[in-house]
């Protein structure tokens, strides 16, 4: 098999028929009930969240949701959340803490939405608040990058005790196009940028930013979702077991150290 380049993975990560957050939620959990709204402004369809059970244990699940068809993708704003999306996620995470439920998040976004309304409602503040609050939540948090995780818009739901990436997912400071446009003054150099950014699962494992790479079938996760679900299930089970042995204080302190020392 030919070597898969970083750009190939970007393309795989963005594939329209690649499984999205709700596919993983359906595959990994039972009894999912979606909960809506940030109790402040609205309900952002680019982020889904709710309660479900994982092998019988209640958990809170949150994911950035892209559409699999053009129309749905537009309704989901291509997976680019507005501030109310991040605030909904935070509301659900605080709720999880209150009821002692572990949190599992799915990251899949080209970035936080750069629109006028988003700025008026404090996109920066919403992301910052999530980073701050997630750092001190007293329940286990597992974050899974399933597609493209771009910029602060991805990080806003990715501060956790375990950070996992699917083999073909990318997690980067900005989209390769944005990166190329800033550093090479030419967005058409995105292919080159994808490699230079070091944003593949393997790169980030080498940096110590992620804990685990979940293997994908040849051609991408859509080729055999069952296989990916099986591996993810085993990893979540193992991680929750490990994390459940820690006191709340240890949990939060370990999370602090994780981000304190990773760079």
């Amino acid at each position: 098999m030919a070597k898969i380049t970083a750009w190939d993975r970007v393309m795989l990560a963005r594939k329209m028929d690649r499984p999205k957050a709700l596919d993983y939620i359906q595959g990994l959990f039972d009894d999912f009930i979606e909960l809506h709204g940030d109790r402040n402004f609205g309900d952002d369809k680019a982020i889904v969240g709710g309660i479900a059970t994982f092998e019988g244990i209640p958990v809170t699940v949150i994911g950035e949701q892209k559409g699999k068809k053009a129309k749905e993708n537009m309704e989901r704003n291509f997976g680019m959340p507005n501030p109310e999306g991040y605030r909904k996620a935070l509301r659900l995470m605080k709720q999880a803490e209150k009821f002692h439920r572990p949190i599992i998040t799915f990251i899949d976004t080209p970035g936080a939405y750069p629109g006028m309304g988003a700025e008026e409602r404090g996109q920066g503040e919403a992301i910052a608040r999530n980073l701050f609050e997630m750092s001190k939540l007293e329940v286990p948090i597992i974050c899974i990058v399933i597609g493209e995780g771009s910029s602060g818009g991805a990080l806003a739901i990715a501060v956790g005790d375990r950070i996992v990436m699917l083999e073909n997912a990318v997690y980067s400071i900005l989209s390769p196009e944005g990166f190329a446009s800033i550093l090479y003054k030419d967005s058409s150099k995105a292919k080159e940028a994808a490699g230079d950014m070091k944003a593949t699962a393997k790169d980030l494992k080498d940096f110590g930013i992620i804990d685990k790479i979940i293997k994908e079938p040849e051609g991408g996760a859509q080729e055999d979702l069952e296989m990916v679900i099986k591996e993810l299930k085993a990893y979540i089970k193992k991680s929750l077991k490990e994390l459940s042995t820690l006191s709340k204080k240890e949990l939060v302190e370990n999370r602090y150290e994780k981000f304190r020392t990773m760079c």
Partner: peptide, 26 residues
């Protein structure tokens, strides 16, 4: 914003500094 030339390491500084502020807050 985050410094492009250091890639994901820069992005992680956002989490690191925000985490540190929880200690000051506490």
């Amino acid at each position: 914003g985050a410094r492009m030339q250091e890639g994901m390491i820069s992005l992680m500084q956002m989490a690191k500094t925000s985490s540190a502020l929880t200690k000051l807050d506490k």
